[in-house]
Design a protein around this nucleic acid. Sequence first.
RNA 1: GCCCCUGUAGCUCAGCUGGAUAGAGCGGCUGCCUUCUAAGCAGCGGGUCGCAGGUUCGAGUCCUGCCGGGGGCGCCA
Length: 584
Amino acid sequence: MAATPQNLLRARVGEAVAAAFGDDLEMPEPLVVPTSDARHGDYTTPVAMTLARTLGRSPYELAQRLAAALQVEPVADPPEVVRPGFVNLRLHSAWLAQRVGELVGDECVGVDPAPAPARVVVDYSGPNVAKAMHVGHLRSTIIGDSVANVAELLGHEVERVNHVGDWGTQFGMLIAHLDDRGPLGEEAGSGDLAQVEALYREANARFAADEAFRERARRRVVELQAGDAGVQKIWRWLVGLSMAENQAVYDLLGVRGLVARGESTYQPMLAKVVADLEAANLVVVDDGAKCVFVDGFTNAEGEPLPLIVQKADGGYNYETTDLAALRSRVEQGAGRLVYVVDAGQSQHFQMVFAVARMAGWLPEGVEATHVAFGLVLGEGGRRLRTRSGDSVRLVDLLDEAVQRARRFVVERAEERGEAVPGDVDEVARVVGVGAVKYADLSQHRQSNYVLSFDRMLSLKGNTAPYLQYAYARIRSILREAGWDGGVPDDRPPVILDEPQELDLAKRLVVTGDVVSRVAEDYLSNHLCTHLFEVAQAYHQFYEHCPVLRSPEPLRSSRLALCEVTAATLRLGLGLLGIEVLDRI
RNA sequence: GCCCCUGUAGCUCAGCUGGAUAGAGCGGCUGCCUUCUAAGCAGCGGGUCGCAGGUUCGAGUCCUGCCGGGGGCGCCA
């Protein structure tokens, strides 16, 4: 448990509640919360009010008894009791100073490892073969990568799995269409993904309109699944072409360690999944399809809704694949399964998890979570879809972001009469890509995300560039002081006399709280808010408190604040998958 | 029709298992660069938290109903 104020105070309040009101009492929650207003101190406990009814006493009286039993030194000043029954706590500046001192040189800035490390499989990105990645894949990739980063920092063994859409009916269509359109792509090097995508759209249209074509497409799927050499060759070519193009996007995004394990991986396991479900008496054949009915799910007519695990034509579908993948991951020792997939799939995952529980493939101790996120919308609030033709390719979106960042750097240099930095391309990439990621991650993931180039690339406000800029400013100071290579072992203690120093320190000591919360709720926007608050507090400190010009021991104390701030931004942005620069 | 998400400042959004006078950013207006990077800082203005009830000492937060937006609802993935 990280030595954060909230953790420490929670423990003390818990002890005080037991001491004052008896330890057989059910502990009220929450024990300690941050105050809404600095006038009420830094933290408060509302437990006296919570307990007032069950104990039949006035909250104020209970608050006084609680305060009398409460030992918060040296973390906080003596508690203050306020009507109707708050017990307010103000952090002791000496404790804060000491705590910040402990964080100097700590790359994890007070984030402690999880008590029970587990094997965590994070399933994200999931592009489809034969289609370029579009903005819809952006959120899964960015959010999933951050989820994996956070789990990894907490000491979990993380497996980043790219569940590529490389199997299924669409290949039947595509291959059947290629039959008619000639041997595009069968010669190595001919054709590119844009061409394939156009063919995909044509195939889709024919599939919808032409019964004979539909029939032929289904045959092609069966041949593919049966391992027909000719069909497999085309399929492999399509997969290779798509993955090469996707890799360019991952390189640009700086997403690493993502292991492609497509739907086809699980193909050999599908028959056994169905057979085992049948053996467990979970399967009902309905209209020729093998179904597992799950309590609590109904269709549009109000009838029970099944999870179909084998279609009437004998083919398997993605429900079967997801079950096979889940089962295989658990068998390989996963303690936690995380699926970063859009919110539209939430019923699907509920049903898959439910069936997996019924089949015993998801034991009690293993946690499966669907980390759902909202849609990507256009400026008008309309949904962006590939089929509608007005969607943005991910490569184009990122390129545009990088170009805008580059333009800004060049213009700023010209305004100041300085030379354009030699590493302008690198700066543009880090800032542009960072801006795109941050715009997404700083938003609550459940809500629909309105994509706006102007907003996401705005270099002001609660954006990645603001944080990166703050970081670069700090690094500049640390460089001047000779602290950039490492901090001196022999340092005077941290001094927090100015209100800006105190405020900055209060924010620096809670990173452990924030990260553990994000690890639980997968809501990266809380981390973003924290980093923004740290950066704002730093800028206020920067305006009011000279660092390099101050005499010792103030100079070293302020350098220590700079150092911990830089480490916080570096760590936090790193968790979001965003790079930092020593100079901008 | 049923299920899930959602409605907070002009715009985009936060709001931590119910806590005190609901917060940011953008945009608008006013100041601050001979001083560690002005991508910054200080300040001003901006609200019936969709509507109506209910529970509670206390509701943006929980419950019910209604209105509006999005998504999903058996053989695509």
